[in-house]
Design a protein around this nucleic acid. Structure first.
Lengths: 156, 156
DNA sequence: GCCGAATAAATGACATGTAAAGTAAAAGCA
DNA sequence: TGCTTTTACTTTACATGTCATTTATTCGGC
């Protein structure tokens, strides 16, 4: 969508405002990056959100309840329920009801998932490097700083 | 998803690389912005992609074939077909078969759509301003420049 | 002119995100 | 104890994006 907005604006002449141009630049660039990431993951049979759930679980290092995963993804619970279902079908995770609180289901990685994640680490890091290839480190630090300021200014 | 990645990395310590940090910063910021935009449009009964189709049509100023719209959105044809169907149901556009080439269906805005777009112009511009509030113009220009360089380096 | 290739759209299958409603279990409180 | 409220998760409905396939229609070459 970002690209569409931008291209349309190109047609209509200059941007309506610098702020608009900045916003669209972010959206457009992000779109491109997301596509690349999705493409890479697809080659390994994962969707971005499946990958993210696995990665969060690896980061945590121990079984996690669904809602906690959802929080880290800034997603709504229903989305997680489905992704968890798929990962279960793929036999990449375990899901067991907690004995303390039977409303809670704890999710953990199976060895196959850990192997898959390890296999992905290098390609992903490589992809990040490719996406930013040719951008000087100073520019990258500036970019990170400005984006941080932007995010800080957007209330939740 | 971007936010998830980032937060997970936070947990696991420093970023694996500056490039990764840059990438995630872009993805995360874009997510926030997209959410805001979607929220605003929803208040007016539009989804982001519906809005984009309308905006592209307004930019063009005359009837356009579906595929041309799709190209501007960098989307695949199937997505457009469905969005067009919805806009038809909402009575915001006209769709007629071209007499030159009967494979082609040309889409054009109805007056109601033009009114809706006009009504949205100010709020959207305002939103862009809010998203970038507090970011100096020099920083914005720098941001735009760096993001352009990044996009230029990502092959299609 | 006719047949195969290319093109414009539509359709179906999946995965995802969001909102809204439903279920089950735990917690709080009278 | 019993009842109401929260909480954890599921289910359903809808919009979107992707890919693969199908349907018309046009085009190109013979």
């Amino acid at each position: 969508m970002s690209r569409a907005l931008q291209q349309e604006l190109k047609k209509r002449g200059p941007f309506d405002s610098l702020e608009q141009e900045s916003t669209l630049a972010v959206l457009r660039t992000s779109d491109l990056m997301e596509n690349r990431l999705a493409r890479l993951l697809r080659e390994h049979g994962l969707t971005p959100s499946q990958y993210n759930v696995l990665r969060i679980l690896r980061g945590e290092g121990k079984p996690m309840p669904c809602l906690e995963i959802a929080e880290r993804m800034i997603q709504v619970a229903p989305a997680i329920t489905r992704v968890v279902d798929q990962l279960l079908k793929m036999d990449l995770i375990l899901k067991e009801q907690s004995s303390d609180d039977r409303r809670v289901f704890k999710i953990q990685l199976k060895p196959a998932a850990k192997r898959l994640l390890s296999k992905l680490d290098q390609p992903i890091l490589q992809l990040h490097a490719t996406l930013l290839k040719g951008i000087p480190k100073t520019d990258q630090r500036t970019l990170i700083r400005i984006l941080e300021q932007i995010r800080a200014g957007i209330p939740d």
